[in-house]
Design a protein around this nucleic acid. Sequence first.
DNA 1: CCTAGGATGTTTTTT
DNA 2: ACATCCTAGG
Length: 765
Amino acid sequence: MSNYLDGLNDVQYKAVTHTDGPVLVVAGPGSGKTRVLTYRIAHLIEKGVAPWEILALTFTNKAAREMKERIGKVVGQRANRVWAGTFHSIFARILRSEAEKIGYPSSFTIYDSDDSKSVISSIIQEMNLNKEHYNPNAVLSRISSAKSNLITPKLYEKDAELRDQDRQAKRPHIYAIYAKYTAKCKRSGAMDFDDLLYRLYELFQKNPDNVLDKYRQKFKYLLVDEFQDTNHLQYSIIRKFVQYPGSAHNICVVGDDAQSIYAFRGATIQNILDFESDFKKHDIQVFKLEQNYRSTEHIVQTANEIIGYNRRQIKKTIWSDKGEGHRIKLIKAMTDTEEGQRIADTILEQKNRYHLSNGEIAILYRTNAQSRVFEEYLRRYNIAYKIFGGLSFYQRKEVKDMVAYLRLAVNPQDEEALRRIINYPKRGIGKTTLDKIATVASQLDKPMWECLGKVQIGKRADAAIADFISMAKTFQVKAQQGDAHEVATYIAKRSGILDELKGDNSVEGMNRLENFNALLDGVKAFVEEDTVIDTENIEDKSLSSYLQNIALLTDLDTKEEENGDYVTLMSVHAAKGLEFKSVFVVGMEEKLFPSFMAMESMDGIDEERRLFYVAITRAEQFLTLSYANSRYRYGQMRYNEPSRFLQEIPLERLEEVSGSRNPTVRPGFSTSEQAGSGGAKVSGHFRKPGRPAVAPGIDPKTFKADNPADIQAGMKVLHLKFGEGKVLAVDGAASSRIATIFFKDAEDPQQRKIMLKFAKLKIIG
DNA sequence: CCTAGGATGTTTTTT
DNA sequence: ACATCCTAGG
């Protein structure tokens, strides 16, 4: 029965079978992390733990789905009874059944970030604040990060440091916006994404009717995937589940500090450190999965080298026995257009030479906007491709409009839904009217819906509002009776949306109608098919149930058939967890990768470096990097220097593609700040990078590199990282001169080959 | 209340 | 470059 354990290596086996007590699994890229997690759950079930006593939290629906499928392969149907799902969906599920205890309707709406932003915008407007300084995006991220750190509006108001930061950013009233935002969501019967976490925390904290004990007893085993991406709030909830007197502390977290790429959203690898110390006294076991089964040595060792430049990391040695493999290719292009063409050329070449299928190839970029050139050339070369990212189905206007009608039918308090559709299609209820009602609602602290029709505006507007109310009421009644599909088709017709869309005969209009119909088809499928989310089949086919189901679906959950053989184009973030035989990481330029937004701080650079680490570790056999000297950005030609990360690649791992199309090469780096710096904090098993980031006695601030073209054999030079050295030889053509330099202070191979174009060297004699 | 065209603001984003 | 947002005039 337990042949599933056979294929595991030693550490994996231990991580799977050591079921009791706290466990931390540090899992390098390609080390079989998902395998350990799923087999561990399967193993628990085989040992007699009931599936519904196991709670497994992931970050994406996809990961949860995959996990369940793989558990199913070992234990069959029982896998569906495991509570496996995303933090948000599992917590939403718990909150649905406990909502009344904290003053929410059980049919609460879930606001997506667009809804949240819209709420914030209306508050900013209401408060008459300067729109220049109060950007809804910035305000939301501020509020979100407060919530993620358990800072309530009251605490925020009293927090001198936060208030000070806000004052300096010229938005001193954020604390007030936060308070209003919270109140507004509450009276709309709505929770935003952060609330799904925060309100659960609050529920457990207040613990009415001992609700917490119920869940502590229910879930005997807790597992967390991608633990490095959890924020403080998520970890606090996890601790609520397992850390209490008498607990068995059966918690297993799996993560990789080197792949933490969501710090900008509040994720903190501090949680991994805290986890170790928090559970130390309960005999925590730490397992490190260090064998990489994905990539060849050139790739794995390059990744190791690069991540070594980061200041803090959990010490581990990732290794591969897949052989050296191919060197990493570096393509240099003059322009972004040329980059696109050269990449397409290379893809064609690889397909011919190594018989790769499109599906084995991916192009990864830092920003979604970069996809266009590649699209163009792939189309021209007749190579099938698919772009991931961008607008998701549920973010399209026509879809959101319809969903808003559905939401309002289920939860009339939902103010965002109301605002969205009260005048769509046009029915003569304009902004002025709406503002008046909103003001009254705010003053009375009541849902806007309840103030509709109670505020006198004028003859015409009042009549329009009365019509709208009676229509919405019929929707609300319908929603209680029919199944989701019946209600939706009724609303589509009766609301006038369908006619509105049918009336538009433009190409975009047809497209919108198509999406709209796709949504209705989705509702139909929901009603007719067995839908499984989180734990069990949904028998409830009501509209309310449907909305709950789709609220947390996003990205590419619109399960498109996996058929079709296409090259994948996506952002590096989106590629996490995936693997391809051949990977192209493009746009390797300063200000792009690393992003200019991240360049001010060392933390920012470190996160970008982890992102680069994630990018290159997606590759199994072929890794190609590219950059362009110039590219269009915001409609203007910009010149960028090659990314600092390129210099961090060991020369012997690189194969430079001598491009015939780029005869001129811009001079190398000037004096911009260098990667890495001293002063790394060393705590616990964290270590300094393999070699000091900056050679002793050199101040990066004052270090000024000389023109690399001047470097000649025999010179004494100063290198920012390796210190003083003597140039033994210079070879290569003008565009790619390579110097062999002897560094007397450096560790390991004292003699290094350095590509002058990249090097920052100061001539000292 | 509605529409056209000028002003504006651009990272990544599991949920 | 481009899409979205805002403001002035119908």
